[in-house]
Each structure stands twice: as structure tokens, then as C-alpha cells.
Amino acid sequence: MNLPNKLTVLRVIMVPFFVFFMLTDVGGAANKWIALALFCIASLTDLLDGKIARARNLVTNFGKFMDPLADKLLVCSAMICMIPSGKLAAWFVIVIIAREFIISGFRLVASDNGIVIAASYWGKFKTVSQMAMIIVLILDLGGVFDVIGTVLIWVSLILTVVSLIDYVAKNIQVLTQGGM
């Protein structure tokens, strides 16, 4: 297993620890900071694995499949953890997760047809906006950061919808070739 794939696996392994610190108060006030640190480190692995894979020509089918799944696991877990605190509305998280299920289904159909679909730029922008939103919401600093958090929530939602439309439009042949 190459370094980019190891970073992707590390991101997946970090998710349960992140969720633990988001949903418990074992560490008291430090939980927020531990969860934030875990989320930031996991997010950085997303940036690094792709850069390393492309720079060293280490792009693999495993990476093309697992990297987006690791992102979804990290981001969706974080958003689900924010519903009980009221930082995110359940409907918002449902829209985000629905998009992820649709894209995953699309990838599954593509895979059955021998096609591997890598993440698009719109999907990458969506992921970055969601990660920035999550960081701001975990920080929970109040004041102007509440406004920034609200803006990032709406930007994330818009990019989620745009990336879904872009993804389907560019890969519609997957559905027609898949016998659907």
C-alpha cells in the first residue's frame, strides 16, 4: 500500500476518535479542541494524499474509490454530531448525505461497467467548503464567526447541489450503459 492510500486509511481510522470527542465529555472542555485537532489533521490527510499521489504518479483505483469515501465518512460524521447541539439542522445534513448516497450509487454502477470516476473539481470545492464550515462550527467562537458559519453552511449547501448536478451531467452515460 502506497503512502497516499495509507493517509486515506489513517483518515478513516481517525473518524471514530473524532466522533468520540465530539459526542462525549470525557475530556471536559478539552474535547472541543481535541475533536478540532483530529478533524484538522484528518482534513490535511485529504489534501496530502491527493497531492502526493499525483506528484509521484501513485494514483490507484483504491485511492480513487477510498479517498472520496473517507471524505464522506469524516464530513458526514462531523455534521451528524452537530445536529444535537443545534449547530446544523437535520434537513441540511440529510440533503448532504442524500447527495453522497446518490454519488456513491453512481460510482457503484460505473464500477460495474468497468469505469472508475474520480472526484470532480466541484466535488473538491464542496468538500473544502464543508470542512471549513465544520471547523468554524466546532470552534464556536461567536460574534462574526457565527455569521461566517452561517455563510459557510449556505455555501456548502449550494456547492453540494451544484456538484451533484455537475457529476450526473458529466457521467449520465453511466446510467444509460448500466442497463437502468
Rank of each mutant, 00 (worst) to 15 (best):
R11N: 11
M133Y: 06
I13N: 02
L108P: 00
A70E: 01
A30M: 14
V147L: 14
F65G: 00
I97L: 14
N61P: 00
M79W: 04
L44D: 01
V75N: 08
F18K: 03
L48T: 05
A132D: 03
F101I: 13
L157T: 08
F20S: 06
M79R: 08
I172M: 11
V161C: 09
A29L: 10
V9S: 02
I165N: 04
F145V: 03
D112Q: 15
V19D: 01
V59Q: 12
I13K: 00
L159C: 07
F145M: 15
C76S: 15
K87H: 11
M133T: 08
V128Y: 09
F18G: 02
I117R: 12
A29V: 13
L88C: 12
G149D: 07
D71N: 05
L175R: 00
W122C: 05
V95A: 14
F17G: 14
A89V: 03
A78I: 01
L47T: 12
G142F: 10
I97C: 11
R54E: 10
A70I: 03
L137F: 04
F106Y: 06
I103L: 14
I97K: 01
A78C: 05
I41H: 07
I135F: 05
D25I: 01
V12I: 15
L88H: 07
G178Q: 08
V9N: 03
S85T: 15
M66N: 01
T160P: 05
I134N: 03
L137D: 09
I94N: 02
F92W: 13
K87T: 06
G178K: 05
D46V: 11
F125P: 00
I138A: 04
D25C: 05
I134D: 04
D140I: 06
F18L: 15
D67G: 01
I117N: 08
M79K: 02
A119N: 08
I138P: 01
K72Y: 05
L7C: 02
I96R: 06
L157E: 02
K124D: 09
F21A: 00
V161Y: 03
L74I: 09
A118N: 09
S156P: 04
W154A: 04
P84H: 07
I80K: 03
L23S: 06
T127S: 14
L74G: 03
F21M: 06
F62M: 00
I153K: 14
Q173Y: 13
I83H: 07
N2M: 02
I102A: 12
I13D: 00
V162R: 02
N113E: 13
